[in-house]
Amino acid sequence: MKVLDVQSLVVFYGKINALKGVSLSVEQGQFVTLIGANGAGKTTLLNTVTGVVEGTEGSVRYHGKEILNRYPHDIVRLGIAHVPEGRKIFPELTVEENMRIGAFIMKDRTRVQALLDRNYELFPRLAERRRQEGGTLSGGEQQMLAIARGLMSDPELILLDEPSLGLAPLLVEKIFEFIVEINRLGKSILLVEQNANLALQVAHYGYVMETGRVVREDSTDRLRSDDAIKNAYLGIG
């Protein structure tokens, strides 16, 4: 069953045609990755799904329901969390305030507390630093916070935009372990990555984008062993 189903999505920034008819889908419980070079349109795709950017044509369905061009604050209520590019944590708010803001849509306090406990358990580093301002965390911790904050809305589908950006290799692996763990807990995942090597190792299915189009899609096993992909994205030929 498809959780997310994007069909022939077209997006313009003024005259710039950033998406030229992109189709992509995520099945229930699936871990999907979207790779591609700088400027391919990966962030634009995520932003259009969550209503940050307006789409001109095509459709975005969530559980079969059209959600294209809905407000971001409505999308998150449907069960889609977006962990944006560059983390975008609130640096002046404490770790805990950041987490609580992630649960903004929750009315039930005990549920928020339960989510808080669960996510602190998942990210003990954040629990230790809960009173600290978000901006004082290290890059890796900030990324953990961004992911944990996304989890606080108890989403069904999580969109992650380059969580490895600017992190040391060891930390990247750590972050990826978390993502795999989150997927194992039952969340469907759409991961945008430039680190294709790692992304294709952990995800089930992959899409490759080039200048506003999906140029390849396949199971990650097959993508990994594809010569063209190896040459262009994996740096091994």
């Binding site: 969550t50 209503g51 940050v52 407000y71 971001p72 604050h73 998150v76 209520r77 977006h82 944006p84 975008k88 609130f90 002046e92 708010l93 803001i101 992630g102 903004f104 849509i105 904050r149 809305s153």
Partner: peptide, 16 residues
């Protein structure tokens, strides 16, 4: 406070 810090991200958190 969230909107004044970063309205785009505030929207993603479910804030109108």
């Amino acid at each position: 406070r969230a909107v004044s810090l970063d309205y785009k991200t505030a929207g993603l958190m479910g804030i109108n």
